[in-house]
Design a protein around this nucleic acid. Sequence first.
DNA 1: CTATGGACCTGAATGC
DNA 2: TGCATTCAGGTCCATA
Length: 271
Amino acid sequence: MPELPEVEVTRRSFAGQIAGARILSANLGKPLRWPLSAPPATLIGHVVAAVRRRGKYLLLDIDDGRLLLIHLGMSGSLRFFQTCPPAGKHDHFDLVTSRGTLRLHDPRRFGAVVLTPGEQSDAAQRLLGRLGVEPLGDGFDLVSFQAGLRQRNAPVKQVLLAGELVVGVGNIYASEALFQAGIRPTRKACRIGSESSARLHAAIRSVLASAVELGGSTLKDFSSASGEAGHFQLSACVYGREGLPCVRCGRPVRKMLQGQRSTYFCAACQR
DNA sequence: CTATGGACCTGAATGC
DNA sequence: TGCATTCAGGTCCATA
């Protein structure tokens, strides 16, 4: 489900409520992707100082310097409840605080909750250390992005998904950004001209920013921590539109597989 | 080093 | 109706 916009929308929907809240208990259900590196009981009595985001990870700063990392995987979503209903079959983590309960719902359990000693610890850096720059931040400058592309021989879509150049661009938004930039997803990154790569740079920013504005994509079951659905998918130009007319030229949108994942594009508009 | 494919897990949609 | 197959928003890991 969640790419950067969904994670950011989720963060914004509960960060203000949980910041300053005292942890009353932390309960795990079925195992998630990585084990907790410390017993969750060690969180009790501590305060959640802030909620940040890095790529597709949510970072909960604990008042003693520890960092609780949450990743939503493919099917995860978070809700923040004032009064928390009983846990359902796919609710696998509850952080009960003085201001409400943060609950992770994740049917496929590709998500993760990892308690680390701090952002610079090995445990945290193992997950965060190789992430590329934030696409909506100042670090995403055109010149370094173009230089990064020139170094990669892989198809540009795979380079975006790898997240080593720039984070947060997942399967939906990679297709959308490449469509907006007029670049064929199979084109080798190092063979993209500087005008095209400048368009891609701008497209990544604008696609992600507009998805955040629209509250993310609601394909299957995404909603924010307050339960709001997103609306980006209504404005998707190519993703999930195989066979439907390209919004620009009217020819049918095509679907192909790249690295076992669906890619949507317009063969006429993208070269 | 890179590129590829499998692994993790469940549920919904599709096909026969 | 029932059962098997395919697909889904992510990422790590083993293998060539």
